[in-house]
């Protein structure tokens, strides 16, 4: 059994109409075939929450969920997103309340400059969606494609672990504080 009609073709001169679901909203757009999902999100839909750090699949900043899977939007042609579901950082929360991951990132110091944060959050959501009780090692592995230059990752792990507790119905863990040495100093003034 073979499908009817000529092979579907997009471009190079004519744009193609695609429809996709972005953060649960159906969207219909005209796209050039050389446009990536990253460009579609940021430039056509104004969803600038998704960042970019290399556009070559080397840093993880542009990560989104594509049909529930963690993917790099800089390496996905928009034309291949027809009929698919995309979740970006903007889609993590529904309403004014932060998603438990977002709240945990804010409270645990997991976001400093905030530039890797959208991709990191989406990756964290992906790992917890699949494994609500992910271990520290599993979290580190799942986030291993997301570079962060600010934090050294440790506060990110703690945030993901705390959010996982909340998502399992347990109370969040408080942010871990560094040990403080406030003993009377030998060199006090």
């Amino acid at each position: 059994m073979s499908p009817a009609g000529p092979v579907p073709e997009h471009g190079p001169r004519a744009r193609s109409r695609i429809s996709l679901i972005v953060n649960t909203q159906p969207r219909e757009l005209l796209v050039d075939p050389w446009k990536t999902l990253l460009e579609l999100l940021r430039e056509d839909l104004g969803l600038t929450g998704t960042k970019h750090g290399c556009e070559l699949g080397e840093c993880g900043a542009c990560a989104v969920l594509l049909d529930g899977d963690l993917a790099l939007s800089c390496l996905v042609p928009a034309v291949e997103c027809d009929g698919r579901h995309v979740t970006t950082v903007e889609g993590l929360r529904d309403g004014p309340e932060l998603h438990p991951l977002q709240a945990a990132f804010a409270d645990h110091g997991a976001t400093q400059c905030g530039y890797c944060t959208p991709g990191m959050l989406v990756a964290a959501r992906w790992v917890l969606d699949r494994n609500p009780s992910a271990t520290r090692e599993e979290i580190a592995e799942a986030l291993s494609g997301q570079l962060c230059r600010c934090t050294g990752y440790l506060q990110i792990y703690e945030a993901v672990e705390s959010a996982a507790r909340v998502l399992r119905g347990e109370p969040p863990s408080p942010p871990r504080l560094p040990a403080a040495d406030r003993s009377v100093p030998d060199d006090a003034r």
């Binding site: 969803l47 600038t48 929450g49 950082v89 976001t111 400059c113 905030g114 530039y115 944060t117 408080p174």
Partner: peptide, 18 residues
């Protein structure tokens, strides 16, 4: 005090404009 940074919300929601 270990309070949430004032700019944290914008950063975790993706609303911070770089």
């Amino acid at each position: 005090r270990p309070l949430r940074r004032i700019d944290a919300r914008g950063k975790v929601t993706g609303e911070t404009l770089f």
